[in-house]
């Protein structure tokens, strides 16, 4: 396949709120989660370690409860519409877990690359593989002439590194300087982002 494809981060880019803190607030672990989020955002804990810890905190909420929170999250209407119009060349590339974000796979209807889980014999969700975003980025580069990456966090750096065009997204919170320093563009809401994407 030729042409341009678009890789979107999920939390705080396509969704108008970060999903993990939303789940944490359901089980009254907001403070613990926000400390961990801050340490991760400040680059003090690598994303993979942070995600393992966050997974350990949040799994106690139970799969159904997590999915019901995820299903309720508000999507950016402009970005969701862009994805709907370009389903075969839009991809979600997220560190979030496959079984947790499943409700959004159905809503958005495009292919997701996620961290993966497996069910243990007693029905527990266990972490199988944590997403490294350069892997799907390189895979998509084989299929498309050009890869455009859109994201807002440190864990988007490996994707920006392999993408042809990087767009830092400040629509929900400011992207870290490290991400902006490797970006070609910065956009500040879904309208501006989609106007840019429609010209790429």
């Amino acid at each position: 396949m030729a042409g341009t494809c678009f890789c979107f981060d999920l939390d705080g880019t396509v969704t108008r709120a970060e999903l993990l803190p939303m789940i944490a607030s359901e089980i009254n672990l907001e403070q613990e989660m926000s400390l961990l989020t801050r340490l991760t955002m400040d680059g003090l804990i690598p994303f993979e370690d942070s995600f393992r810890l966050r997974f350990a905190i949040l799994r106690s909420a139970g799969l159904e409860r997590i999915r019901s929170v995820v299903a309720e999250v508000e999507l950016d209407p402009d970005i969701a519409a862009f994805i709907a119009d370009n389903r075969d060349r839009c991809f979600i590339v997220t560190g979030n877990l496959d079984v947790w974000v499943e409700p959004l796979m159905q809503k958005l209807g495009c292919t997701f690359y996620t961290s993966t889980s497996q069910m243990s014999a007693n029905g527990d969700v266990q972490l199988k593989h944590i997403m490294r975003k350069n892997v799907p980025g390189l895979e998509l580069k084989e299929r498309f002439d050009r890869v455009v990456a859109v994201g807002d966090g440190y864990n988007d750096l490996p994707l920006f590194d392999v993408a042809d065009v990087g767009v830092a997204y400040n629509g929900v919170h400011a992207s870290p300087d490290a991400l902006i320093s490797v970006a070609d563009y910065v956009t500040m809401n879904g309208k501006g982002l989609c106007r840019l994407l429609s010209t790429l």
Binding site: N170, I180, D184, V186, T187, M188, G192, R195
Partner: peptide, 15 residues
């Protein structure tokens, strides 16, 4: 970028 976010949030910033 911070000033632009305040006055024209749908602008596109080109680095």
């Amino acid at each position: 970028i911070a000033e632009l976010q305040r006055v024209r949030p749908d602008a596109i910033v080109v680095r």
